[in-house]
Amino acid sequence: RLYEREDHKGLMMELSEDCPSIQDRFHLSEIRSLHVLEGCWVLYELPNYRGRQYLLRPQEYRRCQDWGAMDAKAGSLRRV
Rank of each mutant, 00 (worst) to 15 (best):
Y61P: 00
D66I: 04
E45G: 06
G39V: 01
N48C: 08
E45T: 12
E17Y: 06
Q65L: 11
L46C: 13
Y61G: 01
D71M: 07
R5C: 12
V36G: 03
P20N: 11
R25A: 12
R1G: 02
L46V: 00
D66A: 08
H35P: 03
M12F: 08
Y44A: 04
E38H: 12
E4K: 07
E30H: 15
D7G: 10
S16G: 13
A69L: 01
Y54H: 05
E4P: 08
P47A: 13
S33W: 00
S21E: 05
L15A: 06
E4I: 03
E38D: 15
G75Q: 03
I31A: 05
H35Y: 10
E30I: 06
Q65G: 13
D71E: 10
R57P: 15
M13F: 09
A74W: 04
E14W: 06
D71V: 12
S16Q: 11
G10Y: 05
Q65K: 13
Y49G: 00
R62P: 10
D66G: 05
D7R: 06
H35D: 12
D7T: 00
L46M: 10
G75S: 06
H35A: 13
A69Q: 07
K9M: 15
I31L: 08
L34F: 12
E14V: 09
W67V: 01
V36W: 03
K9Y: 06
G10W: 02
R52H: 08
R25M: 11
E17G: 11
Y61C: 01
G39E: 10
R50Y: 05
D7F: 10
Q23R: 12
E38I: 04
F26M: 13
L56S: 00
E60N: 07
R25K: 13
S21L: 03
H35W: 07
P58V: 07
H27W: 07
C64P: 15
L43E: 02
E4T: 12
P20S: 08
R25S: 13
G39S: 10
Y3K: 00
K9A: 11
L28C: 14
F26E: 01
Y54S: 05
E17I: 06
R52C: 05
L77A: 06
M13L: 13
Y44R: 06
S29Y: 11
P58K: 11
P58S: 10
H27F: 07
E60Y: 13
R32Q: 08
L43I: 09
M13H: 08
E14Y: 14
E14C: 05
C40E: 15
P20H: 15
E38T: 09
S33M: 04
L46T: 02
L43V: 02
S29W: 12
V36P: 06
Q23P: 12
L37D: 09
L37H: 08
E30W: 06
R5L: 14
C19S: 01
S29G: 12
K73Y: 08
Y44D: 00
N48I: 09
G39D: 08
M13Q: 10
L34A: 13
D66M: 06
C64A: 11
D71T: 15
L77T: 05
C64G: 05
Y44L: 04
C64Q: 02
G39N: 04
N48R: 09
P20A: 14
I22R: 03
S76Y: 01
L43G: 04
L56F: 02
E30M: 09
E14S: 09
M70W: 09
W67C: 04
E4Y: 04
I22T: 04
Y44H: 08
Q53Y: 11
R63P: 00
D18A: 06
H27L: 10
K9P: 03
Y44E: 00
R32F: 04
Y44N: 08
